[in-house]
Design a protein around this nucleic acid. Structure first.
Lengths: 177, 177
DNA sequence: CACGAATACATCGCATACGATCTAATAAAA
DNA sequence: TTTTATTAGATCGTATGCGATGTATTCGTG
């Protein structure tokens, strides 16, 4: 089978039409209306930084045999055990449609238990098993990437600003509903 | 929305202290080993901020009929047309396994063309169609969320720090290979 | 108590991410 | 010039995110 039947052949002379070369508008367009370059988007900086973190953490997570969201769930449960799916979701900023499969997977791996709350059968309480706690301890010793290249004060301020940004975005998004 | 406290009437093995206290060691554990709370992880701040951005942008993107990575691709191609898949991937921090399906989708929507470079048939050059450019212009006028809640100087510094963080992570990850 | 509304999860479909692997085309070496 | 290695995309399987929807349980009101 051909690797690609589309995108093949074409009138396409050697001149690749860089006619559209917007490489340098003029001055800083900034937040005017939108003709900004990719590098000017804060959202893209966050998006790509998140990808970078995922890759930086991959080795350590592979050693644990976990994915990133799985690890987050373990950490969150270690902080407070017996949370409901909703509560856990609030902390992880995820909803049941995303969280349930992750929790089921972790349960199948033996790291946690999911059980309906007898007091309210709608709710599912999630709690770490001993093995899950051991995994969390194991993760302690693995310093998952320290190479942020930021000075301590920059690091702290960055952390605060990112959190503030996140919370503002969430608030603003919720408001316009 | 969240009336009850967790930790109550757990059906599980009784003696687990739900309120997992985590006894503050003394000072900031920081980069020590890892018994940090979720909120102390910079990676989690970035991760959740990225989720927040995705939600904040969703309405505007829905109006365009695009997803977030699709929109990024359009923006990147508008900056420079006729890029190869690799070049585009470098800017978007994605590889062909992720990028190809996105580009194929955008092609099927009529926003871009994918054609093998006659000079090197291994490469695929991607270029916006007129319709793709129109979409980019349309996106200009939609100021996708301004509510970061940050003062301009904070915003700029945050942007720089996030970019620096990302690049350092990538460099560090590449080095240990 | 009946019954519709609200709540808490779960399921489904689509769209990323990404490791592993494949193919075709080109480059490098023998 | 064969042979081999490298390169650029594409494909596949797995795991998120998330909108839309389904289902069981509980709540609220008459």
């Amino acid at each position: 089978m051909k690797p690609n039947d589309a995108a093949r052949s074409g009138p396409k002379s050697g001149s690749r039409d860089n006619s559209r070369d917007n490489s340098k508008p003029n001055a800083k367009p900034k937040s005017a209306g939108g003709d900004r370059r990719l590098g000017d988007f804060l959202c893209f900086a966050i998006y790509s930084a998140n990808l970078a973190f995922g890759r930086a953490y991959r080795q350590g997570l592979d050693d644990l045999g976990l994915t990133y969201p799985q690890w987050i769930a373990i950490v969150a449960l270690w902080e407070q055990d017996g949370q409901t799916v909703s509560e856990l979701g609030e902390k992880m900023f995820l909803e049941s449609n995303t969280l349930t499969p992750i929790l089921k997977k972790l349960e199948s791996m033996g790291y946690l238990r999911r059980q309906r709350d007898p007091a309210d059968e709608r709710q599912v309480r999630v709690s770490l098993t001993d093995e899950g706690r051991r995994l969390r301890e194991k993760g302690m010793h693995m310093n998952l990437v320290a190479s942020t290249g930021l000075k301590p004060d920059e690091f702290a301020r960055l952390q605060e600003n990112v959190v503030a940004l996140r919370d503002n975005l969430i608030k603003a998004t919720a408001e316009e509903a």
